[in-house]
Nucleic acid binder design. Structure first.
Lengths: 165, 165
DNA sequence: GTCAGGTCCATGCGTTCGCAACAACATCCC
DNA sequence: GGGATGTTGTTGCGAACGCATGGACCTGAC
């Protein structure tokens, strides 16, 4: 342990080395970008953008294939206004419906239509083939399990760290 | 090993299970999105967008702080026209210069100016603090090293897999 | 040399995005 | 109840993006 880390620990934090964290993040980021570029090139998205597909995918895993706009926004990189208009387009295409939510007249419940669910499954089936090729073809089962465990832990632990005050 | 995997191996591929690959990718993707959202919220970017910073960062690691437009595009999610205009804006702000590249009159060499390098270092210094807090605070040194090794391997191995023919 | 095909970058144009402001509702405190 | 404050979603508008296309240049065959 070098002096910097020791100093940090005396301040009550158990932070791994700055360099190790930065390098791990960069590797994670670059891997995600590289894979995303390939997935984007894939001819599996039909009339949807990846962001639109991701919303349909998220909805397909929600109870009743329905979620509030706010919940959808929490798992997305889009800002709330952009998501609002994305959902507006999905509704115009007949893939989702927008309705009221019980017990909160402000809320908007976004619900997958049958056609939306069908579209999601169809694209998802093709997309998962690409994932198997590119991700499953790069790492073995143990490595995949380890990667999943680490990224799950990273996401959970990061969520527990407050914003700088 | 289940029947599906066995069948795949008889076809000459050593693919890990589809489910494991899909779940690992989703975890990786969600972790990246969650962290990215927090980094975006950080008040460290000054007048730049994250994408603009990423270009300056990439240039700062290139020999001579200079790279061709094409090379910059390979590590970015932006399309070529979008990157072209992003660099155009960076040039207008005095952060990069555009010049010819030796031995190829089509090429455009993008070079970091002193002010661009200073801006990148200043933002980078603040950004790396967030990375240490959120990434270094979530995983210990061993976990960071493992995560980096796996994502590096994933990126390299994926690059070696050809597009579907 | 020159012509065909490929690569690299820029530009026109319609779409999507983010920011700021706003409207509508919920919640809390009195 | 009633106003102050916070939350949820929408809208106006300028900025940025992606797609299609075009111009300039490189490469290879003849």
């Amino acid at each position: 342990m070098d002096l910097t880390e020791e100093l940090q620990m005396t301040q009550g934090h158990e932070l791994a080395g700055t360099r190790a964290a930065a390098e791990a993040w960069e590797s994670l980021f670059r891997a995600q970008v590289a894979l995303m570029r390939r997935f984007q090139r894939d001819d599996v998205w039909g009339p949807l953008s990846i962001r639109e597909y991701d919303v349909l995918f998220t909805l397909s895993r929600c109870p009743g294939r329905s979620a509030r706009l706010k919940e959808l926004g929490e798992g997305s990189l889009l800002t709330q206004p952009s998501l609002s208009r994305l959902v507006e387009r999905l509704e115009a295409d007949g893939l989702v419906t927008r309705g009221p939510v019980p017990d909160d007249a402000r809320g908007v419940a976004v619900t997958l239509t049958d056609e939306g669910a069908r579209m999601q499954r169809e694209i998802g089936r093709r997309h998962v083939r690409s994932i198997r090729r590119l991700v499953g073809g790069a790492l073995d089962a143990d490595e995949l399990a380890t990667l999943q465990a680490l990224t799950d832990k990273l996401r959970a632990a990061q969520a527990a760290i407050p914003d700088p005050s």
